[in-house]
Amino acid sequence: MSKTKLTISKNGFIKVEGDFEIVDTEGVVYNVQGRTSLGLCRCGLSANKPFCDGAHRNGFEHEAAAFDLPPMKTK
């Protein structure tokens, strides 16, 4: 399986690229019409959630900078 790449945009969406499938909480698959790249909303303002419609341009701010997570907890 190829890697799926997620890019966290500064003041914007999460870009998903590659071979992916998006499902809702019931396990129903969103039909993304063969797209291999799309944007997911992370500001909560999109009228097309979970997909980005550009509504973040109205003031959503988040400086996206990568960092290391702490080690996973074990029992």
Rank of each mutant, 00 (worst) to 15 (best):
I8A: 11
A55T: 10
L69M: 10
K73H: 09
P70F: 04
L6I: 14
K15E: 15
R42I: 03
T25M: 11
F51V: 05
F51D: 02
E17P: 02
T36W: 00
V29G: 00
F51T: 02
S46F: 06
E63N: 12
G18Q: 02
N58G: 10
L69R: 09
K49H: 01
G54N: 04
C52K: 08
G44S: 08
C41Y: 04
K3S: 15
E17L: 07
Q33E: 15
C43Q: 02
E61Q: 12
T7S: 13
K75S: 14
T4A: 12
V32R: 03
I8M: 10
L40D: 03
I14G: 04
A47I: 03
N11P: 02
M1E: 14
G34P: 03
A66N: 03
T4Y: 01
E61T: 11
E63L: 07
G12N: 04
F13Q: 15
A47Y: 01
S46C: 07
P50Y: 07
R42L: 04
F67I: 00
E21M: 10
V28Q: 15
K10C: 03
R57G: 14
H62L: 13
Y30T: 02
V32D: 09
F20C: 06
R42Y: 03
N48I: 00
G12V: 07
L69S: 11
G18M: 05
E21F: 01
F60G: 06
P71G: 10
H62I: 02
K75F: 11
E21H: 09
P71L: 08
V28F: 09
G39N: 08
N58I: 08
P50Q: 06
M1C: 11
P50F: 07
A64M: 00
P71M: 04
H62Q: 14
F67R: 01
T74A: 09
P50M: 07
G54S: 07
G27C: 04
A64D: 00
N58A: 14
D19Y: 01
G54M: 06
L40N: 03
S9P: 00
T25A: 14
E26Q: 12
K73G: 14
F13T: 07
H62W: 11
F67C: 00
A55R: 12
D68R: 11
V29L: 10
D53R: 09
T25C: 10
E17T: 15
L40V: 08
S9F: 09
S37D: 10
V23F: 11
E17Q: 15
T7I: 10
L45A: 14
K15R: 15
F67D: 01
H62D: 12
A47V: 05
I22Y: 08
T4L: 13
K49G: 01
T36R: 13
A64K: 00
G12P: 00
I8E: 01
L69Q: 10
M72H: 11
G12C: 06
M1Q: 12
K5G: 00
V16P: 04
E21C: 09
D24K: 05
V29K: 14
R35K: 14
L6D: 06
F13L: 13
V32I: 15
K49L: 12
F60K: 05
T25N: 13
D68L: 11
